[in-house]
């Protein structure tokens, strides 16, 4: 009895903590359905008196969050595709036994994770402009994907190294070359790694702010949701219900994705730390 009590006492600490933790989200959703008038005068109730979709309409069309959503989806998918293709190919190559230069390359990759970068945004910006991709989402996606490659490469390398050699030899006997072995034999086996890498980078790209901000300075129509929210707040600091609706548009989709795939996500982060 005593033991049971002692164990359950922790909930007295954890429940209030968690309520504080989720409150901003709950408030955001509730405020998005309130009228501006109720927001101004109303009490602290989380249930709106007269639920309205007006805020969403305003955020979606007037504040251009429809465009920003499309941009964010494009940007995030581009980053995920780039990271998957480049990291899986490199991870496969680095898992070949006895590849000369492998150790040096892996050492450089790992070292950059821990060496402070200072601020590398200016050369990145100059390079993307030099490539003629300055005002486009592709340039931003390249700049976002480049530094995000280290962990995915290491994950793919570890996975491919663990695949029994016999499997590959069998593929070779069947006449599959390097490319076909990679594309038709190894890559389908790597589905769990692909899932983890895709999810981690999708969430990372969706939430990215610095890179999309810098690369859309000259072209507001290319803003992603995070940058759009910043612009909206800068323009209209007092439209709280509209801002809450815009925040819902930005945050709710990614939180839903996370909730559905949280196991993959959490295990991916945990795996990256352990390795």
């Amino acid at each position: 009895m005593n033991r049971l009590l002692r164990r359950n006492v922790w909930h007295l600490l954890l429940v209030p903590l968690c309520l504080v933790w989720v409150y901003p989200f709950v408030w955001m959703i509730s405020a998005a359905f309130k009228t501006p008038k109720e927001m101004l005068l109303g009490g602290l109730s989380l249930l709106p008196d007269h639920a309205t979709l007006d805020n969403f309409r305003r955020a979606w069309t007037t504040a251009k969050f429809s465009t920003y959503t499309a941009n964010t989806v494009t940007f995030s998918i581009a980053v995920v595709v780039l990271v998957l293709l480049v990291a899986s190919a490199a991870g496969y190559a680095l898992s070949r036994p006895g590849l000369p230069g492998k150790k040096v390359l892996v050492a450089v990759l790992v070292a950059t994770m821990f060496i402070p970068h200072g601020y590398t945004i200016i050369p990145t910006f100059v390079l993307v402009n030099g490539l003629g991709l300055g005002n486009g989402l592709l340039g931003a996606a390249l700049a976002q994907a480049g530094p995000a490659l280290v962990v995915p490469v290491l994950l793919f390398m570890g996975f491919f190294s663990g695949i029994p050699k016999e499997l590959e030899e069998a593929a070779r006997m069947d006449g599959a070359g390097y490319l076909r072995t990679y594309w038709q034999v190894m890559l389908p086996l790597a589905k769990p790694v692909i899932g983890t890498v895709a999810l981690l980078n999708f969430i990372g790209a969706w939430n990215a702010f610095f890179i999309p901000l810098v690369f859309t300075l000259g072209n507001p129509d290319l803003r992603t949701l995070g940058v759009g929210m910043y612009g909206f707040y800068g323009q209209d600091t007092t439209d709280w219900t509209g801002l809450a609706a815009a925040a819902c548009i930005s945050v709710v989709p990614i939180v839903v994705v996370f909730l559905f795939l949280q196991r993959t996500f959490v295990e991916g982060i945990a795996g990256a730390v352990k390795s």
Binding site: L82, Y92, H117, P123, L142, L149, Y178
Partner: peptide, 22 residues
């Protein structure tokens, strides 16, 4: 040879957007 070909995208992207900027 093929392994090095497979490493080219990594070297370009990582070199261009992490090593070169540093």
């Amino acid at each position: 040879l093929w392994s090095y070909v497979f490493l080219i995208p990594l070297v370009l992207l990582f070199g261009g957007f992490t090593v070169w900027p540093m």
